[in-house]
Design a protein around this nucleic acid. Structure first.
Lengths: 134, 134
DNA sequence: ATCGATATGTGATGTTATTACATTAGTCAA
DNA sequence: TTGACTAATGTAATAACATCACATATCGAT
């Protein structure tokens, strides 16, 4: 389940909304964008988002309660490592990267402490190069 | 402003609620705990939390919308590095640590990309050693 | 055709956070 | 001590984010 084709109608609508967006969208922003497609209730969005998160096609940005399409959809290196996000507080743009050193250090800490990790969030808030220059 | 003495009444009440809690508390849980002290509205809690965050006495856990007292209040190594949190989804316990290697890698990425970072969130969700054993 | 699993529709509700505005308390200089 | 400024507080209303409960529909496998 990694291609748009195999998504249900609602999942595809939500994914496309995120894919064509320039930056992260909140669930309610997505809802508003899809009212024309017949969406009426938050749950229609949240259910689709949950599935898309499962499939690894989108990410949730915890620090801003928003969602983005994965920017490396065909790069499976991410599926093994942790993904970090740099979020610009001026323009809202999000840069996604994954770092093996960070991944390794987190794994060291968890195994030393017997912590069974399920999901790790790394979010850097700040101002991107473009906005810092302006 | 690093000691409890210099806090205002509301700040001290909120800080003490967090300090005596076993784990993270939501703003509304704190509000309920402090109704006996005269708290009536969310803003009383949020305003105190904002200041305590400023002072570095507490942390906000973005992935669970909750707050914890800083567990290393007298260790200023944290003020230079990034703090990571391991959050147990079974018992709610939070372990706080800071790692220079992770801090360094994040700094490398930000400086390579001209990103001016202001705050970084690292949260590991999973199951702690105690709960995994049980 | 029936069953089970998955997906959807909808209203109500629960949880988290902020806005707007009024009031009070502390600080400090003239 | 007054006035003026700043920080802190009180309160109601509202906004923003997320889930529950229940009904209905769609689809595949037997």
């Amino acid at each position: 389940m990694t291609s748009t084709q195999e998504l249900t109608k609602n999942q595809a609508l939500v994914f496309n909304a995120l894919a064509r967006a320039e930056g992260p969208l909140s669930a309610y922003t997505i809802l508003d964008q899809l009212r024309g497609e017949g969406f009426r209730a938050p749950l229609q969005v949240y259910r689709a988002l949950d599935k898309l998160l499962d499939y690894g096609m989108i990410h949730r940005l915890e620090s801003i309660n928003a969602f983005v399409a994965c920017s490396h959809p065909h790069n499976h290196s991410h599926s093994h490592g942790m993904t970090a996000f740099a979020i610009c507080e001026k323009c809202g743009q999000v840069s996604e990267f994954s770092d093996e050193v960070i991944t390794g250090r987190v794994r060291e800490w968890t195994s030393e402490n017997g912590f069974r990790q399920s999901k790790t969030t790394i979010e850097i808030r700040g101002v991107c190069a473009n906005c810092a220059a302006a």
